[in-house]
């Protein structure tokens, strides 16, 4: 992976995590964080620039989806789940 591209990947990764954290729903939030981390970990060793570019495009699309869905989630926010007080403690 080229150095500049590596930086791009990392910044996109951080953006995805930052946006995922905004999901008001406990289950969507934990899923998004977990899925983003696992996807980047899984593709850590991908070296082919073409494949990297493809994955980056997918990640950009996902980022847009997350941003839109976070917005919608925030518009219709409801009660927290029983799991959430504990989640805060462990953070």
């Amino acid at each position: 992976m080229a150095a500049s591209s590596r930086e791009h990947v990392l910044s996109l990764y951080r953006m995805l995590l930052k946006e995922s954290k905004k999901f008001p729903s406990y289950n969507y939030r934990t899923y998004a964080l977990r899925r983003v981390r696992d996807a980047f970990r899984e593709n850590r060793t991908v070296g082919d620039p073409k494949a990297v570019e493809e994955l980056m495009n997918k990640a950009r699309d996902s980022l847009a989806v997350i941003q839109r869905q976070v917005c919608i989630g925030q518009m219709f926010e409801i009660q927290k789940t029983i799991m959430e007080p504990e989640e805060k403690k462990s953070d």
Partner: peptide
């Protein structure tokens, strides 16, 4: 202000995936 129960009934129905709604 009550806390919601956690969901363990995925055979009855599943929450919609945000990607699906999108």
């Amino acid at each position: 202000d009550e806390l919601r129960p956690l969901y363990m009934d995925f055979q009855a129905t599943t929450p919609m995936d945000p990607r699906v709604l999108d």
